[in-house]
Every structure is written in structure tokens, then in C-alpha cells.
């Protein structure tokens, strides 16, 4: 993985894997992000909470290249400027994203979904001739195992249950082997048991030296993750720290948690 020894990169030297500074995005006058600053260390897992419209999804859009910020810096992995790259380039740098609504390729089998997500050469001329290598087959087995989908491998992804789709999508993220995972509401609509299993899975991923950013509403889940929490409000950071500190912050209680 990345060694975070400061290098001679032109951008500000930072020990962070992801570095957002003063990021502002507005849509027709509405400020979705307002001078947002955030840093994620390598191997760190971070939970992001905040009310609807706090800018959580927009933040992810900015990091993954879907939305260009009006102002501000977004740097990744020793100073790569993400604001200049498109989604595909950012994904190939090692940033994976899981959507709020589970998005898998419904007319492909579970196996093919993972296969398409496996890290590798994404250029069309290479993909046209690609054959599944032994290494890929091994990784495929491994990920199916982790995501608990080995039995479903031949099924079409469109036929999976909601929870299975969530897990398949996390499996696809793993297959990408990204340095940073952005996970948007992974447990929405899951049962308690599934939620716990998901928390365990995410912890395992993080322990394997991946940085993970989790956006979630479910406070029980956030608590189960037991990591540093950032609360967003109106496009900027309202509070940051351990879950207990943040959840006792009066402003956080006022705008988000309620009394």
C-alpha cells in the first residue's frame, strides 16, 4: 500500500490519503458544499453522518469526479489532484464507490459482476481479448467467499435480495482493491443481523489496510463500527471526533440527532 512519507509532490505535503480543503459546490445558488475540509489517513475508517441535504452524497460525487467543485482542493495519494480527473481515471487510481441505492449489473451473473470489477487493465482493446486468468479466478473465489455469495455465483444479480445486492456491491468494491472505499448507506433496508455482519465486513476490509469512508444514518451501526465520526451540516463539518463526543455536541443534537 501507499507509504505516506512526504515526497516531492508539488501539492501540500500531507500524511493523508484523501485531503479536501475549502471545497465549495453550488447548484443554481444553493450551496451543497460550503468550504468543506476533511482528511482521511491511510487505513483509516471514517463514518460520516448528517441530516439530509448536509452534502454527504455531493461530497462523494466530488471525490469520485462526478461533480466538479467550484473552488477548493481535492487531493489523493501524495497529491494527485482529483478535480482534474474523470470518474474512470479516479476509479483506476484506487477509489471505489458504493451507491446509496444498490447498483449492480442486473443482467450479469454475480460472478460476472465481480469479474468486471476485478482490478486490471480497463482499456477497451485489452478487455476485448481478456481471458480469465488463474489469479483472477482465485481472487473471484476469495471475494465470493468474503461477500457470502459463493452459492449464488451463477445467478443473475437482478434476482438477488436487497441485502445480497448490497453485499455484492461491497464485493465488487473489494474486487477493485481500492485504496479508498466510499460507502454510501450500506445498511439501509437491512435486517439487524445483516447490519451486524456488514459492520464486521467493513471492519475487516479496513483492517486489511484499506481506507473506508462510510456515510450512514443508522447510529447503532455507526456505533458498532467504533471509529472516528464526522458530522456534516449545510455543506461543512459541524463536529468531528469519537462517536460519544460528537453525539453529545449540542449543535449536532440540534440539527441532526434531535433532543
Amino acid at each position: 500500500m501507499t507509504t505516506l512519507v512526504p515526497t516531492d509532490a508539488p501539492a501540500p505535503l500531507t500524511p493523508s490519503l484523501l485531503y479536501l480543503d475549502g471545497v465549495t459546490v453550488s447548484f443554481d445558488g444553493f450551496r451543497a458544499l460550503n468550504e468543506l475540509s476533511l482528511q482521511i489517513a491511510p487505513g483509516e475508517m471514517r463514518a460520516i453522518i448528517g441530516p439530509n441535504g448536509a452534502g454527504k452524497t455531493t461530497m462523494m460525487d466530488v471525490i469520485t469526479g462526478k461533480t466538479r467543485p467550484d473552488t477548493g482542493e481535492v487531493l489523493f495519494d501524495r497529491g494527485v489532484d482529483l478535480t482534474r480527473l474523470d470518474e474512470a481515471a479516479i476509479a483506476n487510481l484506487g477509489i471505489g464507490r458504493k451507491f446509496q441505492k444498490p447498483t449492480v449489473f442486473e443482467s450479469h451473473t454475480v460472478e460476472d459482476n465481480i469479474l468486471l470489477a476485478l482490478k486490471g487493465d480497463r482499456r477497451a482493446r485489452h478487455v476485448l481479448m481478456a481471458r480469465t486468468s488463474a489469479e483472477e479466478a482465485r481472487r473471484l473465489e476469495e471475494i465470493l467467499e468474503i461477500a457470502g455469495l459463493s452459492a449464488q455465483r451463477e445467478r443473475l444479480a437482478g434476482l438477488l435480495s436487497h441485502g445480497q445486492k448490497q453485499w455484492l456491491e461491497i464485493g465488487m468494491l473489494l474486487a477493485q482493491d481500492p485504496k479508498l472505499l466510499l460507502v454510501d448507506e450500506p445498511v439501509a433496508g437491512m435486517t439487524d443481523a445483516e447490519t451486524e455482519a456488514t459492520a464486521a465486513l467493513l471492519k475487516r476490509i479496513s483492517a486489511a489496510d484499506h481506507s473506508v469512508v462510510v456515510v450512514e444514518h443508522d447510529m447503532a451501526f455507526v456505533r458498532a463500527l467504533g471509529v472516528k465520526v464526522t458530522c456534516l451540516h449545510e455543506g461543512s463539518v459541524l463536529a468531528e471526533g469519537a462517536i460519544d463526543t460528537v453525539s453529545e455536541n449540542p449543535r449536532v443534537i440540534e440539527v441532526y440527532l434531535g433532543r
Binding site: 462526478k66 470518474e87 471505489g96 449489473f105 468486471l116 480497463r122 477493485q176
Partner: peptide, 15 residues
């Protein structure tokens, strides 16, 4: 994949 979920495909790194 592009047909069914274009932006997902992009986020997987395909141009």
C-alpha cells in the same frame, strides 16, 4: 454493464 448502469461502469474505472 454500460447499457444497464452507465455511471456504475464508470466508477469501476471503465472509460
Amino acid at each position: 454493464s454500460i447499457r444497464d448502469a452507465e455511471s456504475r461502469t464508470r466508477f469501476l474505472g471503465y472509460r
